[in-house]
Amino acid sequence: MDVLQIAILGILLGGVYALMATGLTMLYGVMRVINLAHAAFMIVGAYIAFVLFRDFGIDPLLSMVVTGPALFVVGVLLYQLLFKRIADNPRFTEMTVLLTFGLALAIEGILGSIFSNIYHSTEPSYATGTIDLGSVFIPTGQLYGFIASLVLLAALWAFLYYTRPGYAIRATMQDRAAAQIVGVNVDRISALAFGIGVGLAGVAGSLLSYLFTFFPGSHLQWIGLLLALIVVGGLGSLAGAFVGAIGLSLIAAFAIDQLGPEWSYLTFYVLLFVILLVRPQGLFGKAETI
């Protein structure tokens, strides 16, 4: 395949990966929570989009106005009911790994009992369309997904850099105690960050619903890929997640072209391994944070 063509495909998907990874790295940044249920929440979002599409004919891109807020609420509840209670535990981060993995499997089980374990996807007209540019083509669905991701990430960025709660979230990500000292109610800010993080998983699910096929267990392959992205970018770094996502996705696109489709996931793990050997703190991480 043409180099330019491969690059286009890699970048378009990379934008969507960046959206998926941002919520995950944000929760780690704010609370040192490794949310292994993040991808399961994406799948929940995808199923919501699927039902809305199947039963009401609602476009998956439009379904983001449902999946985002719905999962936002789930994130806030999750914080209030679960994480807040164990936040003072000295083994907090280890506990969250087990808890969220359990949660992911529970979500998988519930989805399985509702939808059966067969592949689903939404099929809006643009999902299979292409825009022909002579020597290269742009898949319409991926282009829309990329644009939607960039718009959402830009909105998130503006929120984080230009609003008071945004400042507070960034401050809490950088130093939780220092944030408390300047008067941030870190409890409320953590609840908000959880809502946003899980809400981002929800909107990513809407995109996933037509870009990929999914079944209740597909969160497992996704979480592996997303962890690779955020670890490469530096855990808790939003910029790192973005660069990591685009970069790895580009490399994966070339690897698939050269080495075959099984490299679509393998690339991420190999790159994760190589990058951590060279730079254990990730590309954007500070040495002491890992």
Binding site: Y167, A171, Q174, D175, A177, A178, A179, I181, V184, K286
Partner: peptide
Amino acid sequence: LDRGVCFVPTDRSLFPEMSVRENLVMAGY
């Protein structure tokens, strides 16, 4: 803090990735 007690810890607790000005804005949170 709202009651009027402000603490400056030994490690200074600035937000390392924020600019000096942003730190001052944060101080006035």
